[in-house]
Amino acid sequence: MARIVLVTGVSRYLGGLYARRLSADPGIERILGVDVIPPRHSIGRAEFVRADIRNPMIGRIMNQAEVDTVVHMNVIATPKDTGGRVTQKEINVIGTMQLLAACQKAPSVQRLVVKSSAAIYGSSPRDPAMFAEDMNAKSTPRSGFGKDSIEVEGYVRGFSRRRPDVEITMLRLANVIGPQIRTAVTDYFTLPLIPVPLGYDARLQFLHEDDAIAALVTATTGPSVGIVNVAGDGFLTLLQCLAMVRRPVLPVPLATAGLIGNIVKRSGLADFSPDQVAFLAFGRGLDTTRMRHVLEFEPRYSTRAAFEAFAAGVHSVVADVEGVGEAVTGAVTGAAGGGAAALARVFERLSQ
């Protein structure tokens, strides 16, 4: 039973929400919230400790407080949240290595809970309809958050071999969405002009932000369950999602989607990566049998209900910027770079 809990990434939205929910559990004696910057939101009765998990000082904090449960929430999905890809990878990979090294040396640590991601499965046309936890990616993510998640899980498995006495739970969360959270996916669906892969209509699964936190609290206070997929029931297709957010759509050939994504990224409207483009083209499905029968967790929101909760706060827009048609045509046909430059100007005007 968790008594003294250390939570990383407490200054981020999900980390703060988790700390507030855990604060309501009278069985938890003490909560330490760790991050490099003070939180701008409430963290309940958690005590904020300003520390960098990349620094060995995190080990001294664990030992002094006699922490028995570590909840690793500080695996960051979008580089713009950290100032760039280099910093994102340092926090995700190096930070996890240092945190696990501290856990290994802390005799009081009895449980480790890690917020992982379904991004480790990647997205490809060869994928099964549903990924179970013992399946590997058909096309392994080679960059970005997906690659970081694979490395993080690898380090956790290595830690479990060195400290077999520590109970470990890793939750592979589907894309988290909701009325408050901001992610690369929510940024994409709020673009004023949404590029979509031409000829594809991927099946998507989502997890409501409240269910994501409830699952993590269950993993903290309940029995250890190993690796578990967590997602809302059912699927939505990409085009169904676009209809719900009532935004104009820009169909682009898959071969040029990366170019369009780079234009959108430079405009500052959303983070795009090759993994995201593949996800929008091929989708991803998670088998949640273990979630129900091992974790014994039932999400309150289905995939549709989770997306509807998000879409309710998205205002419809009409893209009326001059030159959209010519810019799109030029960009997707590679008209000497002129089309791409014109399309970039379109997104710049749309972002104003």
Rank of each mutant, 00 (worst) to 15 (best):
M1Y: 03
M1S: 11
A2F: 01
Y13D: 00
L17F: 06
R20N: 08
R21T: 13
R21W: 00
A24E: 15
D25H: 10
P26A: 04
I31Y: 07
L32N: 14
V36Y: 02
I37H: 01
R40K: 08
S42W: 00
R45L: 12
F48Q: 00
M57K: 14
I61D: 12
N63P: 01
N63Y: 00
A65M: 06
E66D: 06
D68H: 07
V70L: 09
H72W: 06
I76V: 15
A77T: 15
T78I: 02
Q88T: 14
Q88V: 08
K89N: 10
I91L: 12
N92P: 13
M97V: 10
A101C: 07
K105D: 12
P107F: 04
V109A: 05
R111C: 02
K115G: 04
I120F: 03
S123G: 12
P125N: 10
R126N: 12
A129Q: 12
M130R: 15
M130E: 08
S139H: 05
K147H: 15
D148S: 15
I150S: 07
G154N: 10
R162M: 12
E167R: 11
I168A: 02
L173R: 11
A174M: 03
N175S: 11
V176M: 10
V176D: 04
G178R: 11
V185F: 10
D187R: 10
F189E: 03
I194M: 05
P197G: 05
R203T: 08
Q205Y: 06
D210A: 04
D211K: 07
I213K: 05
A214S: 14
G226H: 06
N229E: 08
L236R: 13
Q240T: 11
L242Q: 07
V252S: 07
A255F: 03
T256P: 01
V264P: 06
F272A: 10
P274M: 02
P274Q: 02
A278S: 14
F279W: 11
A281H: 09
L286D: 06
E298C: 06
A309F: 04
A311T: 06
A312E: 12
G313K: 05
H315M: 01
H315S: 08
S316I: 00
V318L: 00
A327S: 09
V328F: 02
V332A: 05
A335Q: 10
A340S: 13
A342E: 13
L343I: 00
F347Y: 15
E348Q: 12
S351E: 00
